[in-house]
Amino acid sequence: MARIIVITSGKGGVGKTTTAAAMAMGLAQRGHRTVVIDFDVGLRNLDLIMGCERRVVYDFVNVINGEANLNQALIRDKRCDSLYVLPASQTRDKDALTQEGVGKVLEDLGKGHDYIVCDSPAGIEHGATMAMYFADDAVVVTNPEVSSVRDSDRMLGILASKSRRAEEGGEPIKEHLLLTRYSPARVERGEMLSVDDVQEILSLNLLGVIPESQAVLNASNAGIPVVLDNESTAGMAYNDMVSRYLGEDLPMRFLEEERKGIFSRIFGG
């Protein structure tokens, strides 16, 4: 059976889809058969981030409704053979996701894959609870500011009580924290919560810290998951995240402000 990872946050715009794309691509690049599912029915974005928006024929809801089979809906990534994308439907709403239907799709996908990455929509309503219900692992994406931290905290409470594992009384979902859009300079000036501040409130296993980076936006616009950009700090940090998820013990990077040399100061490098 595949391991099911939900990427969630409660709050919107914190980097869930970017993280889902990075996680899926990172796992696939390391040779694991991976599929990434967009649960944001009605507001789909994952196809854009993955750069496969022009190849969408059938979607997740079609499969749930039996209008297409999985092989018709899955899109194989052009850069990595072991990665597939299951896009969301843009024309339906989240009520189209039934617990039975989602469970069936995940079960079928589990037979041919090692990891299933679920990109959750924002909020704590139906779409989000469907994305997390069957999860084995949860990556809670949080920005270093108070409202995002509180929403993540709320999400962790829901993860602990409204998942299949909770209902069946099994081992709880393994929860990980990912801090995104981290800016050491702003932390230093006291404008942003530090890693320690967030850790103190959420007390959670820290999977990674992704620095704020222009490369993320550029990558999204180009439809190339930022994890493939090994020149950028965000790309490197995402690669560390995937390795840590797979059990490697790596130090956190990019927590200190980069000291600019005299030349880069003068020439604005």
């Binding site: 509180r150 905290d153 709320r154 409470g157 829901i158 602990a160």
Partner: peptide
């Protein structure tokens, strides 16, 4: 013996 989260 686990954290009690916001909303619980």
């Amino acid at each position: 013996d686990r954290p009690v989260r916001s909303g619980q």
